[in-house]
Amino acid sequence: MLPDNSLSPGEPIRLFHLSDIHFGLEDESALAWAKSCIAREKPHAVAITGDLTMRARHPEFAAATNWIKALDVPVTVEVGNHDIPYFNLYERFFAPYKRFHAIENMVEAKLHLPGLAIVPLKTTTRAQWQRFPWSNGWVTEKALAETLAAIDALPAGTRVLIAAHHPLTERRAKDGKLLTINGTRTMEVLAERKVMAVLSGHIHDAFDLTAETRRGPLRMIGAGTLSKRIRSTPPSFNEITIDGDRIKVVARNLEHVPTAAMQIDQVPENALPPREPDEPVAPVGAVPPVDPPVH
């Protein structure tokens, strides 16, 4: 669906930022609530930053695409690491997006609103020679070039949000473990182009952080999950309001926990519940007693 360009140029733009729905382990009450919010409030667009499914199975994709197609607003969808086929290696390597066919017009789609563009950045790959498993991010040179070309083609003065699945943090702070390959350089060139923020998912807790790069600051906004795979916060999504050069983020959740209590202060390695003393935990501290199931 095309964005509603009847918006006046100076009007604040409201986006809903969803991520990590994980059909297969979806939270039905959270999904029903999010869908009702979208239907009632009609945000100007919805950005879904990946992991629509749990294991990229056909029934999971069918449920996910039916849910997304029922949203009567413009939608852009990023591909998450859980959305690449796990068990069909032929499809994984030669047709990794085949199961998105029902919403192919939304996948990695650029959305244009008055004075604002949402530009995709691919961080999910079919394989990574540097490591195994392949769940963390990699911004390839090709993916980065495509994103930068899309930004550079925009009219001068257009505000830009980047939509990606993985946070761009390249190294874990405590020991330098590799997280998103080529993340540091990507953050630098996005900061140089004065990107307003990078929207991402993957870790299942919300955050709103500013990274200081060699080429300037870059705001990083992460959405939580709408699945049963919670990390340290209840299921949530972000309401993002862009008013001129200002961005306001509200982490909305069924338990009405304040935004400040929902957001972690550093990017963790993955979506698993924090089990070590130095792992980031949101102030609400809703850590499940055991790790969520994976099936």
Rank of each mutant, 00 (worst) to 15 (best):
P3Y: 13
N5F: 15
S8Y: 13
S8K: 15
P9W: 11
G10K: 14
G10T: 15
I13Q: 08
L15E: 07
L15D: 09
L15Y: 09
S19E: 03
H22N: 02
H22S: 01
H22W: 03
E28G: 10
A30S: 12
L31S: 04
K35G: 14
S36R: 15
C37N: 12
I38C: 11
R40I: 11
R40A: 14
E41M: 14
A47Q: 04
I48P: 03
L52V: 10
H58F: 11
E60D: 13
N66C: 11
I68R: 06
K69A: 12
L71T: 09
D72Y: 10
T76Q: 07
V77C: 09
V79N: 00
G80D: 03
G80T: 03
I84M: 12
P85T: 10
P85E: 08
Y86H: 13
L89P: 07
P96E: 07
P96A: 10
F100C: 10
I103W: 09
E104T: 14
N105D: 15
V107P: 03
E108S: 12
G115P: 14
A117E: 06
I118N: 08
V119G: 01
V119P: 01
L121I: 04
K122V: 08
T123C: 08
T124E: 07
R126L: 12
W129Y: 15
W129H: 15
W129S: 15
Q130H: 15
W134E: 12
W134L: 08
V139F: 06
V139A: 06
T140W: 09
K142H: 10
A143R: 03
A145N: 05
L148G: 00
I151T: 00
T158E: 11
R159I: 07
L161A: 10
A164T: 10
H165D: 07
H166G: 07
L168C: 08
E170Y: 12
R171I: 11
A173Q: 13
K174L: 14
I181A: 14
N182F: 14
A191F: 04
R193W: 00
M196W: 04
V198E: 01
V198F: 01
L199Y: 06
L199C: 05
A206S: 12
D208L: 06
D208H: 08
E212G: 05
G216Q: 07
I221T: 05
I221A: 05
R229Y: 08
I230G: 00
S232G: 00
P234M: 00
P235E: 02
S236P: 01
F237K: 06
D243S: 15
G244D: 13
K248C: 13
V249Q: 03
N253F: 08
N253D: 05
E255T: 04
P258W: 09
P273V: 03
P273F: 03
P274S: 02
E276M: 10
E276T: 03
E279W: 02
A286Y: 01
P288E: 05
V290L: 09
P292A: 01
